[in-house]
Write a protein that binds this DNA or RNA. Structure first.
Lengths: 142, 142
DNA sequence: GTGATTGCAAATCTTTTGCACTAAA
DNA sequence: TTTAGTGCAAAAGATTTGCAATCAC
């Protein structure tokens, strides 16, 4: 039976999300939902899983990440056209993105105040508002 | 005294941007900088050029779009990880993005008021702030 | 047992690249 | 001429898919 884990109860987590609790999904869930929020690409998740000797194929990683996203456990972040980041923080928040390093970090929703927004086009309503704060090196060189 | 040309003087435009004025670049510039602002993918630009019997290869379209971007004539917009949009509006503004249709539209900077922004991480300074307002169909079906 | 899940490898899609050819200055 | 620009077709990288084998329930 279940031993004492520092990790989240992945079985419960998956079940609650309506997903079958398979070995691979548990491995990935353990990796992703351990504690702090993370921003990872599929490739990074696969590499992390491989390093821990969790045997999961890349295709399964992609499948699982999308299923987790659909289930509301993850959120996709689009900041760079070359790859998709999956964010374990699904709450309301924004991002810093440093193009120099490709590093993404969270910005609490409370740190950004949008005091005015336009009306959406006819027949549409507002969905999520993403604020991406791009950063560059301060005073480089000179 | 702006004269009333239907098309921009693409030769002058390209020269000013430091680019050689070639047949292909002129064709693409004519297509892109005619009047209203546009958001197009490389594929769309290539299709439009082909339809007008401008003979330009896809590789050249990609090259030209990037050169135009680098020269400040275009701006890349990242809203969807599947493709890059090139925006002929290089001024300060934001976007509506309708995932349903893949349609992108401009939002004047004045329509969005960011009355509070976080400090960037140490060693970084603020770059551009992109606000992407995602829209969804209003009351669909039901 | 039965249908969902997985893994593999091949396929797909967008974008880039190498290189011989062509054209601008 | 001299160098930048172009086109092609092949390469690359990220993601997806088809399908047989495997696993959860």
């Amino acid at each position: 039976m279940r031993m004492k884990t520092l990790r989240p109860d992945t079985t419960k987590l998956l079940r609650a999300a309506g997903l079958r609790s398979t070995r691979q999904r548990q491995a990935l869930a353990t990796l992703l939902f351990d504690c702090a929020h993370k921003h990872m690409t599929a490739e990074q998740v696969h590499a992390a899983a491989t390093k821990r000797h969790m045997d999961v194929s890349l295709a399964t990683v992609y499948n699982a990440l999308h299923q987790f996203t659909q289930a509301g456990l993850l959120r996709e972040v689009v900041v760079d056209s070359a790859r998709v980041y999956f964010d374990t923080n699904t709450g309301n928040h924004h991002h810093f993105y440093d193009e120099e390093s490709g590093r993404l970090s969270d910005v609490p929703a409370s740190s950004v105040v949008l005091s005015r927004l336009p009306h959406p086009p006819v027949g549409r309503k507002l969905g999520r508002v993403d604020v991406i704060i791009r950063t560059v090196p301060a005073q480089k060189g000179a």
